[in-house]
Design a protein around this nucleic acid. Structure first.
Lengths: 225, 225
DNA sequence: GGCTAAGTGTAAATTAGCCGACATTTTGCT
DNA sequence: AGCAAAATGTCGGCTAATTTACACTTAGCC
């Protein structure tokens, strides 16, 4: 990996726009730059030195396994997102892994300690990062608030709305979303069973609210969702 | 309010331990200092200048009202907690208010902009603050992960365990918690109906797992929860 | 002290949605 | 092309938990 290319990979992220070339180069001692393709599983080996990851391309999901062996989707990471121990607090006991959803992904990573040093030397970045983490928290709070005490249908609608807002291609009230999730994934995200999700999606399709297939979801009229 | 007293109110918080007297004094120029008693409702008037709050004494709950008029408990704030727009990003459309749960509370507040300035001048604080927010985020994630895909009983048990850990007075396996929540509050926190919560609590009482009254909850043997 | 409102106790009817058990379709692989 | 595996579609029974409805108890206030 050429230093310059690494530089651009980071520079590209809005969080790092305030940094100078030399500052980014500092981070770029980055060991990690990784490519992976659909279905691959990436472990954040707990023994390893704590890192922060930046997804440059594609989509992945973070999955946790509880004591009973149940899979729970903890997060969907999209292009441009930072992930990993954003808390800057390493956690030893997490049984988490990432699974690649899109055709292929590119991930860069850097050491948490390097990042911390950089934050200390660069107050503006520190503030941006603080806001970034805060925003992420707000998102989580909101999405959970929606999950709970609403029924499955409402949750699905809300999820689709969010998804459309984040990634949809809009033309008027018609929104097209690239669909890299299976119905099972969607079910897990909105915390319902696969069957219920399937049923609701079909119901929506028969009401002409949307058009579902494995490649894309076309929402006929976003205002009706 | 004497400057020095204000100073100590802030100084006392672990987040601000890294700051010098003069730095804290800067924040103190501000500032709201408010007392309120049980049942009182505190609005974060949206028109007002954005603030960050620090709860010095007592307990409050943050309640949100959705479009249908339903109340949802968003957060329980305990002594020493920072709250408000931790994201440092003011949000115009939140229908939130705080309700005092304990007999009385003391709250100080300072302007978000002042806090931001301080963060810029003090990267170490920024880093601590980010870690603090991150930790809070992790807590939320965990507690919500517990909320979902578990039944009401499990959620109640988990909630009691958490509560005991955070605020309980331990003597061996017996834990006493000062109870400033109603059964309705508890129900809302664990996302169930009041009746179900009542039923479960009574069931636990009849099994001698705990002892519930409006003043305190005594958990007979925390290891059995 | 006595009244009112808030908090708690209990029980039956109703329902959402989970679960198991399949059939069918699509995809990827050799 | 042909096969296996993954994804999707569909159904009915089952169960936890919400809802509705009402009685009782406690706390706070004049």
């Amino acid at each position: 990996m050429y230093e310059d290319l690494k530089y651009w990979y980071l520079r590209d992220h809005k969080l790092f726009r305030t940094l100078s070339y030399s500052q980014i180069k500092q981070l770029c001692i980055i060991t990690g730059f990784k490519k992976a393709s659909k279905g691959e599983i990436i472990y954040f080996s707990t023994s390893d030195i704590p890192r922060i990851f930046l997804l440059k391309k594609g989509n992945i999901k973070i999955v946790a396994i509880d004591d009973d062996g149940n899979e729970t989707i903890k997060d969907i990471i999209q292009k441009g997102d930072l992930f990993g121990e954003l808390t800057l607090e390493s956690d030893n006991k997490n049984e988490e892994y990432a699974k690649v959803l899109s055709d292929d992904v590119a991930i860069c990573s850097f050491l948490m300690s390097d990042f911390e040093d950089l934050l200390l030397k660069n107050p503006t970045l520190a503030l941006s990062y603080t806001k970034f983490v805060g925003l992420k928290m707000k998102r989580i709070k909101n999405s959970y608030a929606n999950l709970i005490s609403k029924d499955a249908k409402t949750r699905l609608y809300q999820f689709l709305k969010d998804w459309a807002e984040q990634e949809g291609i809009w033309s008027g009230n018609l929104v097209t979303i690239e669909n890299y999730l299976t119905q099972n994934d969607i079910a897990q995200i909105i915390c319902t069973s696969r069957q219920t999700a399937t049923q609701l999606l079909n119901e929506m399709e028969s009401k002409n609210l949307l058009n579902y297939n494995r490649k894309e979801i076309i929402i006929t009229d976003i205002t009706k969702i």
